[in-house]
Structure formats: structure tokens, C-alpha cells
Design a protein around this nucleic acid. Sequence first.
DNA 1: ACGACTCGTGGCAGTTTGTGCCACTTTGTC
DNA 2: GACAAAGTGGCACAAACTGCCACGAGTCGT
Lengths: 196, 196
Amino acid sequence: MTERAGAGTEGLRERKRAHSRATTVDVAMGLFAERGYDAVTVADICAAAEIAPRTFFRYFPTKEDVLAEPARQMAARLTAALAAAPEELDDAGALRRALRELGQYVVADRTRMAVFFRVAGAASAVRANPFLHLSGRERQLTEELLRRRAGVGPADWRTRLMVARALAAFRVWLDDLVAGGEADPLAHLDEVLAER
Amino acid sequence: MTERAGAGTEGLRERKRAHSRATTVDVAMGLFAERGYDAVTVADICAAAEIAPRTFFRYFPTKEDVLAEPARQMAARLTAALAAAPEELDDAGALRRALRELGQYVVADRTRMAVFFRVAGAASAVRANPFLHLSGRERQLTEELLRRRAGVGPADWRTRLMVARALAAFRVWLDDLVAGGEADPLAHLDEVLAER
DNA sequence: ACGACTCGTGGCAGTTTGTGCCACTTTGTC
DNA sequence: GACAAAGTGGCACAAACTGCCACGAGTCGT
């Protein structure tokens, strides 16, 4: 290991792999948007992305996982935002701040997200559902909260409930966002998050 | 149609079908508990339940659906309880009451539920997860709430948030219940549901 | 009671998803 | 340039589903 390369340039291999993965996701999303999730086979994606089926399953353990990529990015973003929140904030404040940042991210990437939401909503796939996906991260998120405050042991139920409620609020907002109609989404997000 | 039979006895066909379905679920749960979800094939279940694979998929669209049966029962129970709630209760009160009844149901059927939770928790299957399963019913539940109060049109976000929060609380409680440790689960449920 | 009709069931062939194994090529290291 | 490490592709194969057709057990009309 030379270890001298900067964090951004991780060697040719890494870049190639990342590029191949990204294009596969793009191609797949395009096909899904065009024909619908079920009508697109993995073989189709592979043909369009010019990779072997065997390779596809090395990138994504499941067909659903290609579709779930945006949801996974959201989850990662949320975790990162939470870890980066100022220390002086309490749990609820930090979580709210992180969710607001996630909201900005979603709104900024609106067109791409719109495609994802539409496709994922119509698909029979469950893992890809951003709402459920986020809920599935509750435990991980709670642990991140505890780590932030140097807490140890299992989280008490009040903390877990707080996290669950915050995510519930975010999901309600996401629902409204997907439905459209809100003139100022971010203001609406603040409103929903502030509801006691 | 003779239509003379009581509501309970719906003809031999219905009864046979219900019996076959029930035994299939039982057999499947037994195998899952014994070897784990992934290590049991549909063919195994069919052999043990003495039905043809083709028949299996007529009862359950997916292998996951056999495992999800208890979760589906919970969802159905919740919907029914909500519909049966006294009219004079407001939305939040009715929902809380329904959740309390669901809680009693879960606690009463403890041993069976314990098996389900253990198997479902360890399984790679997602649909079967009771937590997610319940979240997936949010929309349906909200509609039931509106119907109860003769409301029309799409639910406003405050109502949806209220439902989402109540379910979040129930899930937190379920989590505690599965973990064990609570001496009086139903009292704990009241406590969690009452948390503002 | 008897025939017609419906519906649940089983078998078969075929598609699709996902995996283990091995050979081949590309990349990074010395 | 030699060597190790990692990505890639092809093959065979298991397991999850699906469409089709045939058979037989319930059910209904007369």
C-alpha cells in the first residue's frame, strides 16, 4: 500500500469501479422509468450497461438494490449530517438539523428524485421504498445519536421514540413533496418538523 | 348460490381452503423456526404441508407472504379495532384505543408472536417485518380514520403525522416487547402511547 | 338424482433472480 | 518485467415465480 494518494483520487481501480457502478445505476433508472421496474430484467440492464450479469450481482446483491440506490444515498447523507451537527445541540435539535439538510438535498436534486419516487412507488419492490428504507435505519441513526453524545449502552425508549417521530415527520413531508403542490417545500418541512 | 348457510360455515370449499392455508402457514413457520427462513425452500414447505408448489403460490403470491401472515393479521386487527372504536372519540383517542387493543392481542398471543418476531427478525425478507408492515399501512389507516369521521378528500398532513407518530410509538413498544425485560407490557404501552 | 358447470388443485415447461466456481484480464507493487 | 491482488466474464445450477392445460371434487339447476 502506497497510501500516498489523496482522498479524492483513490487509484484507477476505484475510479473505474465507481464509474461503472454509477453508469449502471443511471442506465437501470432510465430503463425503469421507461418500461417500469418489473418489465426490465437484469439481463436488459446488463446489455444496456455493457456488463456481464455476473458482474451486475457483484455491484448489487439484488435487483432491488439498483433501484434503492437513491434511498441509500439519502440514508448515508442523513447519517453524515447527523455526525457533522454542532456538539452544543441536543439530540432533538441535531436530528432536526440533519433532517433539514437532507430535505435541502432532496429538493435540490428534485428532478432526479422525482423519477426515483415515481418508479419506486409504482414498483413491487419494497426495499427501494424511501419511506421504509429510512425507517429501517432508525436503529443505526439512534446509535449515531448516542455516539455523538458519548452515550453508551442501548438507547432508552424515549430516545428511540424521538428518532422514530422525527423520521415519521420527514416521511410525511416527503409524501407531500412527491405529491407536489407545496410552493415552498423547505418552509413546509420546518413546519412539519416543528409540529409538537 | 343457496345462500342459506350461516356466515361461519361458508360451504365445504371455503372451509377446506381455509384449513389448507392455515396448516401451510403453521408448517412453514415451524420449518422457519427450525432451520431459518433462507434455509427453507418452498419445495420443503410443500412437501411438509402436502401440497403442490403450484398450489402454494396460489395461496401466497410470494414466499415472504407466508412469513408475513402474522404481520398481516396484526394489520387487519388494527384496522378492525379502529373501525369499531366508539364514535365519540376523536381521531387520536380512537387510534390510541385501537393500538391498545392490538397490543393486548399481541401480548395474549405471546408465544406464537415471539416465534414470528424471532424468525422475521433474522430473515432477509423485508415484507414480513412487522414494523415496516405496519408503516406500510399508514395510508390505509388514515383513510379509515377519515371514513370514521365522515371526512372526505385527502388527509391533511397533520392528521397523517398524527397517525405516523402513533404507529411509531407502537413500533418502539414492540421493539421493547421483543427484547423482553418489561414486567408489565401493557402498562408500558400506555406509557409510550401517552408520551407527548 | 343426474348432468352441467365452477373452482381448487396438480403437473409441466419456461423465465428470472441469484450464487459458486474457475479462468482471464487489468491494476498496483517491488 | 515478475508477482500479487482485484475486477471481470462465462458456465452451470439452485430457487423463486408464472402461464397453460387437464383432472377431479364441490355446487347448482332441473
